[in-house]
Design a protein around this nucleic acid. Sequence first.
RNA 1: GGAGGGGUUCCCGAGUGGUCAAAGGGAGCAGACUGUAAAUCUGCCGGCGAAGCCUACGGAGGUUCAAAUCCUCCCCCCUCCA
Length: 384
Amino acid sequence: MSREDITPAAGFGFTLLHRDQGSEARLGRITTPHGVIDTPVFMPVGTQGTVKSLTPERVAGLGAQIVLSNTYHLYLRPGHELIRQMGGLHRFMNWDRPILTDSGGFQIYSLGKLRKITEEGASFRSHIDGSRHFIGPEQCMEIQEALGSDIMMCLDECIPYPADFAYAEKSLAMTLRWAKRCKDAGKNHSQALFGISQGGEYGTLRKRGIEELIAIGFDGYALGGVSVGEPKEIMREVTATCTPLLPMEKPRYLMGVGMPEDIVESVYHGIDMFDCVIPTRNARNGMLFTSTGKVVIRNACYRGDSAPLDSACDCYTCRHYSRAYLRHLFIAGEILAIVLNTIHNIRYFMSLMQRIREAIQNDTYTVFRDEFMSAVSVEESANH
RNA sequence: GGAGGGGUUCCCGAGUGGUCAAAGGGAGCAGACUGUAAAUCUGCCGGCGAAGCCUACGGAGGUUCAAAUCCUCCCCCCUCCA
């Protein structure tokens, strides 16, 4: 029996609740076996079955509705079979809300010299111990089914930027064959499966690819191959070109994005889902997002700053600690610095998404976006 | 009192005639980070806008074309002996 017969996945659904009157922005609700997700949504990244430095209770408390985890990493360690034996990833990591698992396509890309791609799939060496492995579309599905995520992603080849047309075209064709194989290999029909658009910066390839993905039929559609070092204009162009081609009634996911301004801009074009390591990684590296721009907490100007990190923020960190203390913790290399910084950055992103949803609901998204973007440009010019 | 070891740029510390404004750490300062090989990585780090010049290797002299490096005296620190 082909998977097509029972798409959409049982227990999975997307409801379009409202469309902003002045833009393509949309308010929606995704239903999964582990609960609902209000969109537009930002998914904190928990690569190895944990949003680094935070307990699941904390992540949920910050407003995260879903987290992303990773096929490649969990396959290598501790192994998907172990996680299956332990009752699946939700139980293993004690997270009862939805989980999206990335396919490992991005790791195939970012591992660089450690891997080799063929029509069959990706042969690679573990970044942990150098051992040899192979993941093709079928293995990718098997792993994600063992993990038991709510949303699985197709294995794809994420090409670098820049990439010439011929390569992008050839790679796209393979990614589409892989997408079909993923769909055919799927056995657990309570897990949703998303297709991933590739094709680099080439509009004709993107269009062709998306049409084929739709023909195969997925529960949602992702734009991949962005946030790989391309100029922002390219990313925005790809987003603007692709979103109108995607089915109105299915969730749209812009993978790996990103900076707050990129999110705001992409929602404008009709994107529903985002994920990015930026809030968590930058928190660990001392870069914090605030309502008045970025704060590099180690900078000397915060040495004696008794103000909260962001007076407009309601997070635990901002309610209890001064910038001076956060700077002290960070410079002293204290673990608490990472925890407090991560709490704040995640909360910043969650609040941003909340404001985005409210603006769409109120049909004021264009105003919201214009104000947000002009604040960003003011801040950027102040920094240069 | 005697014997030995040592004093290097903010700190630790390498350097024992030119390639030395002086290795390497640390501290300090700044930047980057976009489906996480990341609590990581990069740059700067004596002064003067650069070529170059000036100030620097405990202090003062000296040898030499050239001294952080060799010689003399002095000051200070550490270890051992009396």
